[in-house]
Write a protein that binds this DNA or RNA. Structure first.
Lengths: 235, 235
DNA sequence: GCGACAACATTGGGTTACAATTATACAATC
DNA sequence: GATTGTATAATTGTAACCCAATGTTGTCGC
């Protein structure tokens, strides 16, 4: 059948459920300060603002609560989490830890021929395009997409699940604190260099855990260099 | 007012919602093999088995899905996750990582006088009682309670949230693989020794990150010594 | 004024019933 | 035998309803 092989590369038509869509919308609203930290979240308000019924909204809120994006619960209702200053540090250090595990597993799989680092290319293209378009927002999404590709290649469901949780937080604080380097072109180039480093490692027979950790740390620090002082991962 | 100070130590009267209760029940059922891995999960059967309506059940399933306990979603319905052999290793290594962050923060807080390691005592008492009663199940719960106390003392909401997710997995695989040392008395003693080590560190001005990591690694390996070969945390 | 207490309004939790969408298994057909 | 069509089963989403918990308001008494 013609074109069958190319189908596998096609992005799945992502029909996410309504509740997931609502969760994304709320996370997005928090990130862009449409909903402020510590603000109350009222189900019925969301019902009329989003035009969906209560059930999907309740499901979304339950998930966001489990992910620590909103706090509260019970009859007291939910509130957007506080996102105090120290949180950034806490997120970045645990993120580094998770990403290290994932990159280690991804490199190992790529060495065995399960997939290839080529999956990193589309997000990089997206990032270059975003940089040209000057959209910090799209650049940030492409950045997360880059790391999500690693997440997929790692085949580590446990760490992957935890990363999904962290990703929401990262999206929020990056928007929040204008955390990201605003030289988008440099960001894109940095990702290309990082990809090259990864490809090199795949070619080699093995890579020390510590080397992966340091490479990731450098990568993340460079991306976030605007606030280097705050984000130094202490060990 | 008399007794006011002691109120803060009182465990909150945990009026958990029905959906949380359902989530716990399902996780429990998976742990005790009442529901087998890869088995399908049908909402309507849960409705009649648990005697609650569909909304809380759907909320519980959404949360369990976000935590990676069940997979699937969409109109295909959910399945219990596979829990393949390699998972144990993946859970333990990321757990070690999270616990290290938490213990570091907890010790730091205790040094500053925010709370005290005394919170570790009730879980230990519970563990001793469980050991005397010969209940491996209660001993396991007490073990998790011990680490949950550290989680609370750490005041690190990000890592804490991730730990909550992992805790469900730990509960399941420990029940699953008869993973735990069956000498319950020894387990309890090991926790007392670990608590003593922690108290020592709180007295000292500082503790290297690596020392905390190694202490935790030893602790967790000793508890799980039945399968030491499988669980060595590779670095 | 100021605090305590009661009445009220708001909101979330939970149930039920129903419509719509989608998967899957099975049968019919070529 | 493979494909197409059909029937069934399950999930998703909506709507209307009650109850319990919580927060607010206002009144009363000091």
């Amino acid at each position: 059948m013609p074109g069958e092989a190319s189908l596998v590369e096609l992005p799945q038509p992502k029909r996410i459920s309504l509740s997931e869509s609502v969760a994304d919308t709320i996370a997005e609203a928090i990130a862009t300060r449409i909903i402020m930290p510590n603000e109350r979240i009222v189900e019925t308000t969301l019902v009329e603002k989003l035009g969906v019924s209560r059930v999907p909204i309740r499901e979304a809120l339950k998930v966001l609560h489990a992910q620590g994006i909103i706090s509260g619960g019970g009859h007291k209702g939910y509130r957007v989490a506080a996102f105090e200053p120290g949180i950034t540090q806490q997120i970045m250090e645990v993120r580094l830890s998770l990403e290290t595990f994932m990159l280690r597993d991804a490199i190992e799989n790529w060495r065995k021929g399960q997939g290839s680092p080529a999956v990193l290319q589309p997000p990089i293209e997206l990032m270059i395009a975003s940089a040209k378009g000057g959209s910090l927002r799209n650049s940030l999404i492409a950045d997360l997409e880059f790391h999500r590709a690693i997440r997929q290649a790692a085949h580590n469901p446990i760490v992957g699940t935890l990363w999904d949780t962290i990703a929401r937080h990262v999206l929020i604080i990056f928007n929040f604190e204008r955390f990201r380097d605003e030289d988008l072109e440099a960001s894109a180039r940095q990702h290309e260099q990082f990809r090259d480093w990864i490809v090199d490692q795949v070619a080699k027979p093995s890579t020390p855990f510590k080397a992966i950790q340091e490479a990731l740390e450098d990568h993340m620090l460079l991306i976030a260099r605007k606030k280097t002082g705050d984000v130094s991962i202490s060990r």
